[in-house]
């Protein structure tokens, strides 16, 4: 079943990716093909099968809550895109309407 324009736009909105009109059309086709393909899993009866989310068998690994190393503010800001007065600079989060 082919995803509609609206469905693709909804997915893109959730994924925070801006799509052009051409891309909406292109991804509608491609994503539908992939989803149709993976739907063959419906052939498998899994009613009595538990899900596997990890394979190590490990449960929570605890350690003492001690700081063993840390990054300096300077080092972390080194890779920042835009800074102002030792802070990351971003667009305003609140507008007058909020």
């Amino acid at each position: 079943m082919k995803l509609s324009r609206e469905e693709v736009l909804k997915i893109a909105e959730l994924a925070r990716i801006q799509l052009s009109d051409d891309e909406v059309e292109k991804f509608a086709t491609e994503l539908s093909t992939i989803l149709d393909y993976v739907e063959q899993l419906n052939e498998v009866d899994t009613d009595a099968v538990p899900p596997t989310s990890q394979v190590t068998g490990l449960e929570n690994r605890m350690r003492e809550d001690e700081v063993t190393y840390q990054f300096s503010r300077e080092d972390m800001l080194e890779s920042a895109i835009e800074t102002a007065e030792d802070h990351l600079k971003v667009k305003a989060v609140f507008s007058d309407e909020n």
């Binding site: 693709v8 997915i11 893109a12 959730l14 994924a15 990716i17 991804f27 491609e30 994503l31 992939i34 989803l35 993976v38 899993l41 419906n42 498998v44 899994t46 099968v49 538990p50 899900p51 596997t52 989310s53």
Partner: peptide, 30 residues
């Protein structure tokens, strides 16, 4: 990368989680 992000976003989204992600995790067990 965009294709995979969108497939994954869809597979995990409300209403589709059971049909895609949960189903695949069960087949993974098999």
């Amino acid at each position: 990368v965009k294709r995979r992000i969108m497939i994954g976003t869809h597979a995990l989204s409300s209403g589709y989680y059971d049909a895609y992600y949960d189903k695949a995790m069960r087949v993974r067990t098999l």
